[in-house]
C-alpha cells in the first residue's frame, strides 16, 4: 500500500475574525473554505465547588451543533479539543477557577475537528489566557486511489478510505492529539503526519499574520 506523494497538496482558503462578540472574554470565528466555526472563551471565572481543582484551572469545552441537541459525536470531539487545550494552556497559573470554551458550528463542509481546534486556539489567544505554545488542527483524508488530500470537503470525506485529524504544536511541530477513522498502514500514517506538519506551518504563519494585523494600530 504505497502512497504516492503528491506535490500539490493544498489547504482551502481560510479566514478568521477576532473579538466579534461583546460578552465573552475572548471570541474568534474561523473559516476553512465553507466550513465555519465560532468560538468563545470565558475565564478565569468562578467555578462550582464540585468542579474545582485545587492546583489547576478547570477547563470545560462545549460543542454546539447547528441542528438538534449535542450527541455522542460532539462529546468525543469535545474530549479531543479539551485534551489539546489542556496540554497547551498554563492551567497552574489560575487554580480553583474555571475556563469555559464554547464552539458553535456555523456550517460543516468537511474538516470539522480541525476547524474547531483552529478556532479554539484563536479564541484562547484573544482572551489573553497564558499558553506555552500554539496549536492547530489539520485533517488528512486518504481516498480510494491512495492519495492524500489535506483539508477535505464533506464530499471528499465521504469518499475517503481513512480520515485523520492531528493537532500539531507550534514549537516543535509534534503531534499533540490524533483522531483517526478508517483503515490505513503505518507508512500512510507517517506520510499523513509529515504532510500535516508541513501544512501546520502555513496555519501558524496565518495566526501570526492575523495577530500582527490586529495589533498594527497604534492606540
Amino acid at each position: 500500500m504505497e502512497v504516492c506523494a503528491r506535490t500539490n497538496v493544498t489547504l482551502r482558503e481560510f479566514g478568521c475574525e477576532q473579538t466579534l462578540l461583546s460578552r465573552p472574554d475572548g471570541s474568534a470565528s474561523f473559516v476553512q473554505g465553507d466550513t465555519s466555526v465560532m468560538a468563545a472563551v470565558y475565564g478565569p471565572a468562578e467555578v462550582k465547588v464540585s468542579k474545582e481543582i485545587y492546583d489547576r484551572a478547570t477547563l470545560e469545552v462545549l460543542i454546539q451543533p447547528k441542528v438538534g441537541l449535542p450527541s455522542v459525536r460532539e462529546r468525543s470531539q469535545e474530549q479531543c479539543v479539551r485534551e489539546t487545550c489542556e496540554a497547551s494552556l498554563l492551567l497552574t497559573l489560575h487554580p480553583r477557577s474555571s475556563l469555559t470554551l464554547i464552539l458553535q458550528l456555523i456550517h460543516d463542509d468537511g474538516s470539522r475537528l480541525s476547524c474547531f481546534l483552529n478556532a479554539a486556539c484563536m479564541a484562547l489567544m484573544d482572551a489573553g489566557l497564558p499558553m506555552n505554545c500554539l496549536f492547530c488542527g489539520v485533517t488528512c483524508a486518504i481516498n480510494a486511489d491512495s492519495e492524500i488530500i489535506t483539508d477535505p470537503t464533506a464530499a471528499q470525506e465521504k469518499e475517503s478510505r481513512a480520515l485523520m485529524t492531528f493537532a500539531i504544536d507550534s514549537k516543535e511541530q509534534r503531534v499533540m492529539m490524533s483522531y483517526t477513522t478508517g483503515s490505513f498502514s503505518v507508512h500512510e500514517l507517517q506520510q499523513c503526519i509529515a504532510v500535516s506538519q508541513k501544512a501546520s506551518e502555513n496555519i501558524f504563519q496565518f495566526y501570526r499574520d492575523s495577530v500582527r494585523r490586529r495589533y498594527s494600530k497604534n492606540l
Binding site: M125, N132, L134, S170, Y207, R208, R212
Partner: peptide, 8 residues
C-alpha cells in the same frame, strides 16, 4: 514587534 505564545 508582535509576539505569539510559544516564542522563546
Amino acid at each position: 514587534q508582535v509576539l505569539v505564545p510559544g516564542d522563546e
